[in-house]
Design a protein around this nucleic acid. Structure first.
Lengths: 145, 145
DNA sequence: AAAATAAAAGACAAAAATATCTTTTATTAA
DNA sequence: TTAATAAAAGATATTTTTGTCTTTTATTTT
């Protein structure tokens, strides 16, 4: 199994795509985004609607409409996307799925996974959405294939 | 989303349960295992049949039958269970789901996730199934709830 | 005001993961 | 050699995830 759900993979890729495409005032349409990250258009639309409702990205209807992000939104950490889509179980949950797993009632992997969970959380919290804009614009990083 | 699939969570918990319950020659039935790790009995049965086919655990039918593991099986790393059930995408796959993600064609998170993937793989490869037997027998670790 | 544009929303479909129930097969013990 | 036991296998059901198609709403331009 992968680290993130398919939905979350699309979400991150799409947000990074929007981020670097609209860094200075433009907007980008769902069709361009779907093509740009190689994802099913209408499925992605649902995901972006959700992220929009949650305030992570912005959108406008009509001609010249589309999705965009302001400067403030670019400063948000990747962890917000992940939490919005997949929840916090990757950071907080028990690796073996035990509801009551804790320091006093640990599963066998409780201690071995503590560092790993913290590393994931720290990395996603310390990395902003706008962090990759230059490399994305210069084509050094890929969001499709 | 969780790190492992539900199937894999059950698999690890069940194998650790079998490991410590049969450390010296006993066998344990599917009903006891399912109760012992709080999982759906018949669903777990399928999982164990699969692990048995793959040689990770052993079983016998009939009276006094059940599942068990020999000394050698206890030395296997946890990573074998994970690979048998969830595959290797947790260790090898691209976090953003890109098929061609690599050093020369990296996704934005390629480098950030390199350490994390390695940590997970190392931990699971360095930890044997039998590693938790004492603590499980003494009740210091939990496999249910 | 009408037409064009683009996201939002709704309805539906397919696939995969998870779960349950029944029948069959192998093994043991009486 | 029959009955009992327990895993293996098969069939089916439910839920969740992923994906598609159509209609509606908001906005802009003519």
């Amino acid at each position: 199994m992968a680290i993130f759900s398919k939905t979350c993979e699309y979400a991150i890729r799409a947000v990074l795509f929007i981020a670097h495409k609209t860094a200075l005032g433009n907007r980008v349409g769902i069709k361009d985004i779907a093509t740009g990250i190689d994802s099913p258009e209408h499925f992605l639309a649902k995901i972006l609607q959700d992220l929009s409702r949650k305030g992570l990205i912005s959108s406008n209807k009509g001609p010249n409409g589309g999705f965009y992000m302001d400067a403030l939104a670019l400063e948000r950490p990747l962890s917000e996307i992940v939490e919005a889509v997949d929840g916090d179980s990757l950071f907080k949950g028990c690796a073996l799925g035990l509801k009551q797993c804790s320091e006093v009632n640990p599963c066998p992997l409780h201690n071995e996974f503590k560092d790993i969970r913290n590393n994931i959380q720290r990395m996603l919290s310390d990395t902003t959405i706008g962090n990759f804009n230059e490399e994305l614009m210069s084509g050094l990083l890929s969001l499709k294939k």
